[in-house]
Simulated scan of single mutants.
Amino acid sequence: MAMVDIKKLEEMERISREAAPVALADLLDVKITGDTPAQRLESYLAQTQNPYHVRVGQTPVRVSFQSEASPLSEKLKSHFLSLKGGDFS
């Protein structure tokens, strides 16, 4: 299996396809295989073609990440603190 090409992933992230949902890979059909994390990533990428633009059933999904965003754990802590109105420290 080929190594993940970072430049290709960056290019896929920038692509804004106007594809019909049926033309996108359906995550419900993806079966990830492999013994190592790298093999599982390769399996996922081979099946989705573009991991940033897929569908779940008939719903198109566009995935994006903020490069300078806070970690998810900090966002979740902040969210739950705001709901509780207190401090989890």
Results as ranks from 00 to 15, higher is better:
residue 32 I to Y: 00
residue 37 P to S: 03
residue 43 S to N: 05
residue 26 D to Q: 06
residue 25 A to L: 09
residue 36 T to H: 00
residue 62 R to Q: 08
residue 72 L to M: 11
residue 75 K to R: 10
residue 27 L to Y: 06
residue 35 D to K: 08
residue 53 H to A: 12
residue 75 K to G: 02
residue 51 P to K: 07
residue 18 E to F: 07
residue 39 Q to S: 09
residue 48 T to A: 07
residue 53 H to S: 12
residue 36 T to M: 00
residue 58 Q to K: 15
residue 17 R to H: 13
residue 50 N to L: 12
residue 63 V to Q: 08
residue 24 L to I: 10
residue 48 T to P: 01
residue 68 E to V: 06
residue 24 L to E: 11
residue 37 P to G: 03
residue 52 Y to P: 02
residue 60 P to C: 13
residue 39 Q to V: 01
residue 44 Y to P: 00
residue 63 V to I: 15
residue 56 V to K: 12
residue 70 S to P: 05
residue 36 T to F: 00
residue 29 D to I: 02
residue 55 R to G: 03
residue 34 G to Y: 02
residue 62 R to N: 09
residue 41 L to T: 11
residue 40 R to A: 01
residue 40 R to M: 03
residue 75 K to H: 05
residue 19 A to Y: 12
residue 38 A to H: 03
residue 15 I to P: 00
residue 59 T to W: 14
residue 65 F to I: 10
residue 64 S to N: 10
residue 57 G to K: 12
residue 35 D to F: 02
residue 21 P to N: 08
residue 61 V to C: 11
residue 61 V to D: 11
residue 32 I to M: 01
residue 13 E to T: 02
residue 71 P to A: 14
residue 77 K to T: 14
residue 34 G to F: 01
residue 55 R to P: 08
residue 68 E to W: 05
residue 47 Q to S: 04
residue 25 A to Y: 08
residue 43 S to G: 06
residue 21 P to S: 15
residue 41 L to W: 04
residue 63 V to K: 10
residue 55 R to N: 10
residue 58 Q to V: 14
residue 43 S to A: 06
residue 76 L to M: 11
residue 41 L to I: 10
residue 21 P to V: 13
residue 55 R to A: 06
residue 38 A to S: 10
residue 60 P to D: 07
residue 31 K to L: 01
residue 24 L to H: 09
residue 43 S to H: 06
residue 35 D to Q: 07
residue 17 R to A: 09
residue 63 V to C: 10
residue 50 N to F: 11
residue 30 V to I: 13
residue 26 D to C: 08
residue 21 P to R: 09
residue 39 Q to A: 13
residue 45 L to T: 00
residue 27 L to G: 04
residue 37 P to C: 04
residue 62 R to E: 04
residue 52 Y to W: 12
residue 13 E to R: 15
residue 43 S to E: 05
residue 15 I to C: 05
residue 64 S to Q: 12
residue 65 F to Y: 14
residue 38 A to G: 03
residue 22 V to I: 14
residue 18 E to S: 11
residue 39 Q to W: 01
residue 30 V to M: 04
residue 49 Q to N: 11
residue 45 L to Y: 01
residue 47 Q to I: 03
residue 68 E to I: 03
residue 69 A to K: 07
residue 22 V to L: 13
residue 76 L to G: 03
residue 16 S to M: 08
residue 25 A to K: 09
residue 28 L to D: 15
residue 43 S to P: 05
residue 13 E to P: 02
residue 31 K to P: 00
residue 53 H to M: 12
residue 67 S to I: 08
residue 45 L to D: 00
residue 73 S to P: 01
residue 19 A to G: 03
residue 55 R to Y: 12
residue 49 Q to P: 01
residue 72 L to S: 06
residue 66 Q to Y: 08
residue 69 A to C: 06
residue 63 V to L: 13
residue 24 L to C: 09
residue 60 P to I: 14
